[in-house]
């Protein structure tokens, strides 16, 4: 797939096409980048509409081991009360349920989790999903982990990878950041890479430039003398609360 996204020059932030409603999007990722890809798909689907979001979770150990966390979803701008979690027994059932859900206009979006090859996802099925999404205006995203791209009728195909975040003070990890490559786009240029960073004021992922390298950040140079590093957030409060 994509050998090294970091080596590819970033595209202009203004050209970034957000995952539009009423379209089918494919989001490819490695299994290790699953959380980034899911956050990307959910945040994009949930931002445009206040309605409920449907998350279709497939079978398999990988899906059962990882549970969505309500507090974490809330940090990505998705009220967990909006999320409807659908657990299905096989991939065919997942796609049928997604089709059923996409036909109802009351939803903000539908995100289908699929790991590995998805033989049931072919041109016919994806075309059906496209038609349902176009008619109802529901945003559809199929999340494909560790899977080779298959020919499909999807409007866009993305490859998402976690990206180093902009470090906060005291070398703390910053807001979620990821690299998104537009592998394919119907009627538009493809092959562009953006670095997206979570913007808490706007509540969306926004394209931005390279982060300041943590090695050149002033926090990196240790001050003279023994100084205890300070946490970016006041974590000591936890102790009094829990104890």
């Amino acid at each position: 797939m994509v050998p090294d996204l970091a080596a590819v020059p970033l595209a202009a932030p203004g050209a970034f096409p957000p995952l539009a409603r009423g379209q089918l999007h494919e989001v490819h990722c490695d299994a290790a980048d699953w959380a980034s890809a899911l956050g990307f798909a959910l945040a994009m689907a949930g931002a445009g509409h206040p309605g409920p979001l449907v998350l279709v979770r497939g079978p398999g150990r990988g899906a059962q081991l990882l549970q969505p966390c309500g507090a974490g979803l809330a940090l990505l701008g998705i009220d967990p009360a909006r999320l409807l979690i659908l657990t299905v027994d096989n991939a065919r059932e997942a796609l049928r349920s997604a089709l059923e859900a996409a036909r109802g206009a009351a939803l903000a979006g539908v995100v289908v989790e699929a790991r590995g090859a998805l033989p049931a996802y072919d041109l016919t099925v994806s075309r059906r999903l496209v038609l349902a999404a176009e008619r109802s205006g529901v945003g559809l995203a199929v999340l494909r982990g560790d899977a080779p791209p298959r020919p499909s009728a999807a409007h866009t195909r993305w490859q998402v990878r976690a990206a180093p975040s902009t470090a906060l003070a005291a070398r703390a990890p910053g807001p979620p950041a990821l690299l998104a490559e537009l592998l394919r786009r119907r009627g538009g240029p493809a092959g562009l890479v953006w670095r997206l960073e979570w913007n808490d004021t706007d509540g969306t992922f926004q394209p931005c430039g390279e982060p300041a390298s943590p090695t050149s950040a002033p926090a990196r140079t240790p001050p003279s003398g023994a100084v205890v590093s300070l946490a970016a957030r006041r974590t000591g409060a936890e102790r009094s609360r829990a104890a």
Partner: peptide
């Protein structure tokens, strides 16, 4: 003052 929580929990 609660530090961020992850998106997915094991």
């Amino acid at each position: 003052d609660l530090p961020p929580r992850p998106l997915l929990l094991f």
